[in-house]
Amino acid sequence: MTKGREKRQNPYKGWKIQQDKKPPFRWRAYHRKTGEKIDCTVFEVYSLAFNMEVHRINEQHKAIEAKPGTLGMLIKLYRASAFTSGDLASRTIADYEKCFEYLRPIEGTPLSRFNSPLIVKMRDKARASRKDHFANYLVRVVSLLFAWGKERGHVSDNPAAGIRAIRKKKGAPAANRPWTDAERDAVQAAMPRHMLLPFTLMMFYGLDPQDALALPKTAIRDGRIDTRRGKTGQEVFLPLFEPVKAAMEAAGPHDAITLCANSRGKPWTYNGFSTNWHKLKTDLEAKGVIQPGLTLKGLRHTVATILREMGKDYGTIQLVLGHATEAMARHYSKRADMTKQTSAAVTDFEAELNKRKTKVVKPAL
């Protein structure tokens, strides 16, 4: 293979994606059936933006139109409206698409057949193959879809409204638990150089993994990070401080448009970073350096917990993490509140017991 070229397996069905054999090794991508091209200088190959452009063109050139009065038609109408309005963040669209892709085998089902028992059956089937979180999220997306259709006269009812979420099993570990200080230090010390910067952005700023990996170089200006959270679109302004500056210097120069780059100097994909993180985590767990249950998402909960323990209010935590509501800030920092409240309650309880102690009177001789 010619030095300088990057050979990767093409995961996109119906697309020709290749890199030139000679410098400057430009990428080229086109839809096989229609010949429509993607400008790879605008949409970097294998990035989230590239994925979304591939999907947009695929939808545009579908050979079979969705049948009127079916779930497929409702999804198509929703895509054409909500996905192009600019109201939804690209991350949210991608999450919705995972659910719509899961529903593809039943797109031909008439809307009139959908009722609450059928939604529950769909939920339970998704639970068996994709676990609880996806099953609950699927119900929320289907409810949103039918609510949208009801408002516009496409359906008369929302069969997913009021469907209860699957409850977490008793004794199940908390999802995305906060990291301990020792765990953060141990993982940071074991991180290879090309993984250190995205991990530092997650650990010190509580950025979503996808947001940290996709953060463009242009977001760094005037001594701060000026960006938006991908999921909510909320603006986030974060000053640069020493640990982050040190990680940026350690990362070294690269040609990627993103601040973080993999070992080949290319933008990270979420799957790529996640795979490397899983290997590192498994190794550290085997050595007993960290406890099971660490997730990258848990670093957002860690930042929120520490801020709350410092006495920061929910509005401040909301601004730092880019939450859309203060309620989410409360959710992410609830462990700190629980610890603070229970510690205070137990201390008060101990004091009350001490007050109730009766003095021992010695018997007269």
Rank of each mutant, 00 (worst) to 15 (best):
L145S: 04
P24E: 09
R330C: 02
L196Y: 09
D211Y: 01
R164V: 14
P239Q: 01
K98C: 08
R5W: 01
L294E: 03
E183D: 10
S81V: 11
Y78I: 10
M338I: 08
R300D: 06
T282E: 08
A80G: 11
G322R: 05
Y78A: 11
S90W: 01
A172S: 12
K13E: 14
A175Y: 00
D39N: 12
W179D: 05
A165M: 13
L88Y: 13
G311Q: 03
A63T: 15
R193S: 11
R91P: 01
K169G: 06
M195V: 00
K297L: 11
A63N: 13
F25T: 08
K170M: 06
G153S: 12
D226K: 11
D226H: 15
R308L: 01
E183Q: 07
K76F: 05
Q234C: 13
L71P: 04
R5K: 11
A49R: 05
K359W: 09
F83W: 09
M73C: 08
C260H: 08
E44Q: 10
T84M: 03
L213E: 04
Y102T: 07
K98F: 03
T218R: 14
A219C: 06
A175T: 07
R356M: 06
I163C: 06
V361Q: 10
D20E: 13
E97A: 08
K245F: 00
I57D: 07
I106K: 05
P68Q: 01
N262V: 02
A324D: 12
N354F: 05
K37S: 15
S129C: 05
D208P: 04
R130K: 15
R224L: 08
A94V: 01
L196W: 03
P110M: 04
E309N: 09
L201A: 04
I93K: 07
S47T: 15
P216I: 12
G315P: 00
N276A: 15
Q188V: 04
V236C: 13
E59G: 14
Q318L: 06
S143Y: 02
Y30H: 14
S90F: 05
L71H: 07
E235Y: 07
A329S: 14
N262M: 04
M202F: 05
T339G: 03
T70W: 02
H331D: 13
K7M: 04
G69R: 07
T325K: 11
K355G: 10
L319F: 03
H61F: 14
H254M: 00
V289K: 12
G272R: 05
F199E: 09
A247C: 00
Q19E: 12
V54P: 00
E97H: 08
P117N: 09
S116T: 15
L74C: 12
S156I: 09
K125F: 12
A128P: 03
Q234M: 13
P209G: 02
R356G: 02
T339K: 15
E59I: 03
Q18A: 06
A364L: 13
A94I: 01
S116C: 12
T358E: 10
T109S: 11
P243C: 10
V45K: 00
P173I: 04
I257H: 05
K266P: 00
E242H: 09
